[in-house]
Nucleic acid binder design. Structure first.
Length: 479
RNA sequence: GGCCCCAUCGACUAGCGGUUAGGUCACCGCCCUUUCAAGGCGGCGGCAGGGGUUCGAAUCCCCUUGGGGUCACCA
């Protein structure tokens, strides 16, 4: 059975890179009827962020990438939080120690720094640990450890030969063992490092395919060496390209908004975000750009992943979100999605029908849910702002306002059947273009020059509000 | 800098020896039009460079260049 996983570390906001990896791992697992696991890698106590853990898990649910096994869901191979698995790691480190595949090292951080500095000055090309304790007498090491002397455990990396990474997308990647160093697998605080913990957990959890970002390529030989030290089989390695900032560097929150929570707050739809991420380094065989996770599961193949690092383009994400808003979601669905945003803005609506009509009228005019709120204030409140350009237009047509108000007030209702002939006739009678009447009216009713069509506006606002707004506008321009 | 990965329009990509190098975003123009959008139509724009291999290279190989990643008791 195919088993994939993502192993985020709870150090900050839920990252789009995590969502990206989750998508590929989820889709691949589902496509093969396998399992998708989420495991939290919280072995760095200094960077641990308590809310991050919960938010990462919530993000995955929001996206609909529900794991089969996770800290919240549990599963047969738990716990799924590494800090709760310390005994497992210690036990495995012990195994390596006994096999002679790892050794205790008593260097202090200061000593290590000094050694690195000395090596640098000597102009040494190879960096990394100088292996001072590699051949240290085992009994002596055990004695010092037993005495409580702080130390780490390092893997004994072969001094010769090479380790080959068989990457699904790149073929064989060779690394000279001589260029590797003896990495720490157990820290002085008793926590494992990523390398050890990830390999132990992947093995114990039955992970068959490690699909992760390419930043891990250079540590893969080390991971393979750990696996071999235990006598375990390797998973399939598949390193996907890194998402990039516009300047092509690795996507980072310093240069870009990388927080999924932030996109959610802006009103980016989960399916649009997922769809967009699905077009990063991957494409549908038939070239479709709008597709669901289900579509992706149907047509996905790891081999179609392209290797160039894709730039995360906010502009296209927003375009795609707009596409979902106007073409993919049903009106009912859209209404449900927008409600929390209205509520947060303190806006209410008279009825479900009214909300849907406003949405329908605005649909082609906003790309995020928050934009709907920002641009539709006049549908929900009398406290809408009067934009400068709109005010100017209002002044231009101020002279028409009283008569316009008079005529509109004479209508039984403001449905298009009545308003359309009235407004067109009005302009004609005045010998002006329709816009000369429409624009000032638009400004009066919405404070804006960018709105849905006039007849939709009049229908939606209704006679009472229209007349009131016209009166206020006349006061404003002193007519 | 060492090691490793990568390289098609500004961005995302299709292409896997024979195509007028296709699509999407962005940009520009036109149409539609009461505004703004949306939509339709059209345009601009690319195989990093140089060597090979081949009857034939965007496609295969090598070099150069460029970009990126990684070199922690972080993941």
């Amino acid at each position: 059975m195919v088993v994939t996983r993502i192993a985020p570390s709870p150090t900050g906001d839920p990252h789009v890179g995590t969502a990206y990896q989750a998508l590929f791992n989820y889709v691949f697992a589902k496509q093969h009827g396998g399992k998708f696991i989420v495991r939290l890698e919280d072995t760095d106590r200094t960077r641990y962020n308590p809310t991050s853990e919960r938010r990462i898990l919530e993000m995955l649910e929001w996206l609909g990438l529900s794991p089969d096994e996770s800290p919240t869901k549990g599963g047969p191979n738990g716990p799924y939080v590494q800090s709760q698995r310390l005994p497992i790691y210690r036990q495995h480190v012990q195994m390596l120690l006994e096999k002679g595949a790892a050794y205790r090292a008593f260097d202090t951080p200061e000593e290590l720094a000094a050694a690195r500095e000395a090596a640098r000055r000597a102009g040494k090309q190879e960096q990394g640990y100088n292996r001072r304790y590699r051949d240290y007498p085992a009994q002596e090491a055990e004695r010092r450890a037993a005495a409580g002397e702080p130390h780490v455990v390092r893997l004994k990396v072969p001094l010769e030969g090479k380790t080959v990474v068989h990457d699904l997308l790149r073929g064989s990647i060779e690394f000279e063992n001589a260029a590797l160093d003896d990495k720490v697998i157990l820290k002085a605080d008793g926590y494992p490092t990523y390398h050890l913990a990830a390999m132990v957990d992947d093995h114990l959890m039955g992970v068959t395919h490690v699909i992760r970002a390419e930043e891990w390529i250079t540590s893969t030989p080390f991971h393979i060496l750990i696996l071999r030290a235990f006598g375990w089989e390797e998973p399939v390695w598949c390193h996907t390209p890194l998402l990039r900032n516009p300047d092509k560097s690795k996507l980072s929150k310093r240069k870009m908004d990388t927080s999924v929570d932030s996109y959610k707050a802006q009103g980016i739809l989960p399916e649009a975000l997922l769809n967009y991420l699905g077009t990063m380094a991957w494409s549908m065989p038939d070239g479709r750009e709008i597709f669901s996770v289900q579509d992706m599961i149907k047509h996905f193949s790891l081999e179609r992943i392209s290797l160039g690092g894709p730039v995360f383009d906010l502009n296209k994400l927003k375009w795609m979100n707009g596409k979902y808003i106007r073409e993919v979601l049903s009106l009912d669905d859209l209404a449900q999605r927008v409600k929390p945003f209205l509520e947060r803005a303190g806006l209410s609506y008279p009825s479900e029908t009214y909300l849907k009509q406003a949405l329908e009228a605005m649909r082609a005019r906003f790309e995020t849910l928050q934009e709907f709120v920002d641009r539709s204030l006049y549908f929900f409140s009398e406290a809408y702002p009067m934009q400068e350009k709109a005010l100017a237009k209002l002044r231009e047509g101020a002279a028409f306002l009283p008569e316009l108000r008079e005529q509109l007030s004479g209508l039984p209702d403001l449905l298009p059947d009545h308003t359309e002939p009235l407004l067109k006739g009005f302009a004609e009678a005045k010998g002006v273009k329709a816009a000369a009447v429409m624009q000032p009216l638009r400004a009066a009713l919405t404070g804006s020059l960018e709105t849905p069509g006039m007849f939709d506006l009049l229908t939606l606002l209704g006679k009472e509000r229209v007349l009131k707004r016209l009166e206020r506008a006349m006061e404003l321009v002193g007519e």
